[in-house]
Design a protein around this nucleic acid. Sequence first.
DNA 1: TTAATTATGAATACGTAG
DNA 2: CTACGTATTCATAATTAA
Length: 592
Amino acid sequence: MDGDASDVEDDNFEWNTEDELEINDFSLPSRSSLTLPNGEAVGEASSSAGPSNCKLIDHFIGMGFSKKMVAKAIQENGEENTDSILEALLTYSALESSPQRQHHNDSDHCSLECEGSFLDDFSDIDSCSDNEKIMNTEFDEEEKLSSLVNMGYTVDEASLAIDRCGVDSSLVELTDFICAAQMANVADAQLSELPLEVQPKLKHSYSEYAKHKKRKLSDYEMWTKNNQNGFEKRLLHDDDETIRLPNPMIGFGVPTEPCSTIHRTLPEAAVGPPFFYYENVALAPKGVWTTISRFLYDVEPEFVDSKYFCAAARKRGYVHNLPIQDRFPLLPFPPQTIHEALPLTRKWWPSWDRRTKLNCLQTCIGSAKLTERIRKALEDYDCEPPLSVQKYVLDKCRQWNLVWVGRNKVAPLEADEVEMLLGFPRNHTRGGGISRTDRYKSLGNSFQIDTVAYHLSVLKDMFPGGINLLSLFSGIGGAEVALHRLGIPLKNVVSVEISEANRNILRCWWEETNQRGNLIDLADVQQLNGDRLEQLMSSIGGFDLVVGGSPCNNLAGSNRLHRDGLEGKESALFFDYFRILDLVKCIMTKAQ
DNA sequence: TTAATTATGAATACGTAG
DNA sequence: CTACGTATTCATAATTAA
């Protein structure tokens, strides 16, 4: 279907360790949160080489796990990989023994089930038919239901899955069904209620999903083959295929370091129309960017730090299918140092604070108590404080982006200063009933305009008459502002944003800037189905560009509590970006 | 009720000494 | 090569104030 042949060679190599990474992704958290009694058995289990199926089952039953669990774990992980089997068993035990953790582990479990289901696809290649029998004969409907609920799925999800897949389906098939629905974030009920002519288009997303599964499968085969050949050590420790952040983080070039002689060739499936532009935090948990890139048609992410565009750092990854030659920056070039951006701080800036750039502008600011502690720590010294005090103050200043506003006085940035640093017009987020707290939050979640505009600048010559834009997770309208400042007319903009305050901000900007085009704003990406999309696209003539930065809060390092990765509650909305983009591609292709 | 304030680590990457 | 120290990070939730 797509141009597999062009990227086969590097794929084979990369996929091996991607599986490895994903296995680590769910094994590490579960291991660290467990205190199960079978610690010493790990070595024994991993060194026992490929016993027959019965022996293998007995082996784990002897360790105290139930027969059901063991069969399931073997079926999902294959009988080769005893480590993975053990990890799975420990995970199941944790889920069963601590019900209050079930919801928390829900997402982890989902990825585990998905991974297992990939392996399940070729279970007939191996000799897992024994397990299949066990699974199917010993589980009646009630047992399956309670098993699924025990695994953290809701009763509704579980019964729906049994209903759709039939009572004869294996647990793996059932969890795979639930997982597929979750991954695409399309409720099954919603799908079946849609008009018949729309369903094939929605199902296209599932076919994409299936395609990825298939590719993972073949790579898993590769991986096990290499294991048998004794290459596992090299492969396990060879992290060539882990997506590496560039150092310096300048992507395919920044205005001061153009390095624009290179010409990249996109995978065939990635070529537009439409153009697409996806953004998220660069420093996400391991494996996240590999997954994002796989879903977005294997396009290599472009990692850029906005400190090359303005006075504040902002390390972000961008996956897009835009040309990268002949980019140009917005003019005037914004202030590049703290002193240029905030001239009044210069008078009070101590010589021992050598910062010239701010750190990432976030959604929260430092407390008054903290700045008071810093003032107290400094007031005893006439000129230079001792090195230990300097270190304390500098650490806190860097951590909270504090600037010098008086003698021994530091303070967090004002909201309008953040606005300016990010490249938005003054007062863009001010007024209109938004609280100061929410203003910081909206700004902290936004694009850096100069950075994004640099990437989008190549569209100017291609669309002199303006563009139709689909903007998902619009926030305060970073994409719209960037295009406007580039002088690219906005013909029709469909903007999807959950926050009403943010929608109001964009609407106000739209009217203040006397836009000639048409702004349609929607609230929820999950409500944007193929039917509605086709309506919109037929009325405006398709989209030229699909922009979106999906929620990062489950990926960002600042999140102490719910840094759950791409399966996290909000960050999983990435799959809606993919779903909608894929629908747009499908509809555009059909209309061609 | 909303808004403001505050305390709350860890995952990850990278440099360097050994 | 590893071990260890340093630096960075689109945040959450409990509590208090208004």
